[in-house]
């Protein structure tokens, strides 16, 4: 466990055996992000308090924290949904801090919490996937879905093993939430993104479907070695998946486990950290908490 506010690159000889594929090349670098809501009013909230986060290419980072800890705000600053008041966001060497959301999408794939949010209900499966295939590309007057693309969609849907490959021209609105979330996940990775943002993407699904989606997530992310940030409220998920686990509290990164220390964690440990963080209130982080 280390304190992120004094982040140091891990020693090069540190073994990463079970997670081969993580390089030391920086992919995402958020520096000193500050975000206020309702600034200058009595309701002022400091949602992000100088957050630093460096993520290496190919790394799969789980983010946990209680409600209002700043997880979604942090992800919003990366996705462009909201802009930080201070600080910079650099992705793949480009300073994207002030880029509008639609421009960043060239680099970023996203899956939302609401399983209906990632697809167009009135459009067909192939139309939705074709929209995703053109992520970040100019859209002109060529055909919206071509024959060769259809084959590609059929092949990638077949990998899901949900029988969707025979339903390309069915409207997405006819599918279940789990099926739609599977398609969204597939769409987000159809063109390999520089960064994949998963915002509690299994939270609204039943346990069985959630597990299926997580398996799929792992498969897709590991296959393509996609740099990933995943917000979750499920501690077991946070421990089981990914190479790294960070905990946010009151707008700060208070804990950061690398893959080795993460493997030793239990849900009980994590809950303990949650309670300690909550008990510390607004006074910030005690040394006991930071040093574990």
């Amino acid at each position: 466990m280390r304190n992120l506010s004094t982040f140091e690159a891990p020693a090069l000889e540190a073994p990463l055996a079970p997670f081969a594929g993580v390089s030391y090349e920086k992919m995402l670098e958020a520096t000193s992000l500050v975000k206020y809501f309702y600034r200058g009013t009595v309701n002022e909230v400091l949602a992000l308090d100088h957050v630093d986060l460096k993520v290496r290419a190919g790394e799969f980072v789980c983010i946990i924290g209680s409600n209002g800890a700043g997880k979604s705000t942090l992800m919003g600053c990366v996705s462009g949904y909201s802009l930080p008041d201070m600080g910079t966001t650099v992705l793949d060497g480009k300073d994207i801090t002030m880029w509008p959301e639609h421009r960043r999408s060239k680099l970023i794939g996203r899956v939302f919490q609401d399983p209906l949010a990632g697809t167009c209900a009135s459009m067909t499966i192939e139309e939705n996937m074709a929209l995703a295939l053109r992520r970040g590309k100019p859209r002109g007057f060529r055909r919206g879905v071509t024959k060769s693309e259809r084959e590609l969609f059929r092949a990638s849907l077949a990998k899901l093993d949900l029988g969707l490959e025979t339903r390309l021209t069915d409207q997405v609105g006819l599918l279940s939430g789990g099926q739609r979330q599977s398609i969204t996940l597939l769409m987000a990775t159809l063109i390999k993104p520089k960064l994949l943002l998963l915002d509690e993407h299994t939270a609204s699904l039943d346990p069985k479907t959630a597990e299926l989606i997580m398996k799929m997530t792992r498969q897709l992310v590991e296959e393509e070695r996609i740099t990933t940030l995943m917000i979750t409220h499920n501690m077991q998920q946070a421990i089981t998946y990914g190479h790294r686990l960070i905990m946010l509290h009151q707008g700060r990164v208070i804990l950061d486990f690398d893959s080795d220390s993460k493997m030793k964690l239990t849900v009980r440990d994590l809950l303990q950290h949650f309670h300690t963080a909550a008990a510390n209130g607004t006074d910030g982080i005690s040394d006991r908490l930071v040093l574990g």
Binding site: P100, H102, K106, I108, C120, S122, E127, R134, R135, G136
Partner: peptide
Amino acid sequence: LATGDNPRMITSLGVN
């Protein structure tokens, strides 16, 4: 069509 159906989704796919 996607703009009318799901603006959030199509924004995340790069459409202004």
